[in-house]
Write a protein that binds this DNA or RNA. Structure first.
Lengths: 165, 165
DNA sequence: GTAATTTAAGTTGTGCACAATTTAATTGTG
DNA sequence: CACAATTAAATTGTGCACAACTTAAATTAC
């Protein structure tokens, strides 16, 4: 029998009929389901820490970018976070109404928003500084494992983006 | 300098002040962001295939479970998918209104829903059978890499669940 | 220089995820 | 038996993600 294994990771031996498709359609063999569940669990794990800052996880990601670099556009932010204006516009409005972010306009190009932090937004960085450490304790993995996980996620993401073309 | 590296994966050398926290709060070093982005991209990649079956990715997951085992409760389904009734009840109603799933009641316990497939729901399995193969092509990774990715996601998920206790 | 095209951001609508709460049925305890 | 506690599912409300579309400004082509 040629190894025409599908996207499942189960073994190819089978005793009943149609087991190949059964294997492929089996929840236990779904890489994507593991990815999806781990991502959900990760967001859940962040929640109690982020609640103290009154941030959601996607809002925290936006703050991470802005703590690093201000004056960027919604487009640039979206390119960094792989999110579109449909997601970011309302999110940024929420951050603005919390007094963390200001949404200016570019002088050169009236279409683009220029995103920057208020002093409160800037100050929040200090309160957030312990989160990465706390989170790493929650995941409780070796740094090498985390590096490997990150690099495989990045690789998968790159491939999936390429497959759209 | 002791290596008190935070959950970032960046190197520990720094030239400016406060670089340790900067490193930890840097988007490029966030394992969780990679996980989150990869999971989003994965769901996006499934969409064109699942559109043909008129299913969303979470609906597809429910169908995967029911193709494997019917007569289970919402609770059991939720335990398998790591989702709660707040997510599953409306999702199952949608699957019911599409004529794929029936939501009966247990005779022994009037509280529990007994989930089963209609003939249309059962038949959809055949149409879905090519999806795992197509998806693996999209991710385009070696099977060993996928196995590693899956096992690390499962490990992270387990840890994150444990850290709630 | 004006019309066609492109681009940035915003809007609308759908479907998750999940916290918090509610409802109703079952189980446990005195 | 009664009544407290537990459990299963549903409900409500918030905030993503994203597709599809709209609006308006900038760019390009002629």
């Amino acid at each position: 029998m040629p190894n025409s294994e599908l996207s499942s990771l189960g073994n190819t031996s089978h005793t009943a009929e149609n087991t190949q498709a059964d294997n492929a359609l089996c929840l236990e063999n779904q890489v994507c389901f593991s990815l999806y569940s781990a991502a959900n669990a990760m967001v859940r794990a962040y929640r109690p820490m982020l609640d103290k800052l009154d941030l959601t996880y996607p809002q925290y990601l936006v703050m991470l970018v802005l703590w690093q670099e201000q004056g960027i556009s919604v487009k640039t932010l979206g390119d960094k976070l792989f999110l579109d204006s449909g997601t970011l516009t309302p999110l940024l409005k929420r951050l603005e109404s919390k007094g963390l972010v200001s949404r200016g306009r570019s002088d050169q190009d009236e279409r683009v928003r220029v995103l920057s932090l208020t002093s409160a937004g800037q100050a929040l960085k200090l309160e957030a500084s312990e989160i990465p450490h706390l989170m790493r304790c929650k995941i409780g993995a070796e740094i090498e494992d985390l590096k490997a996980l990150k690099s495989m996620c990045d690789k998968a993401l790159k491939q999936l983006h390429a497959s759209i073309e």
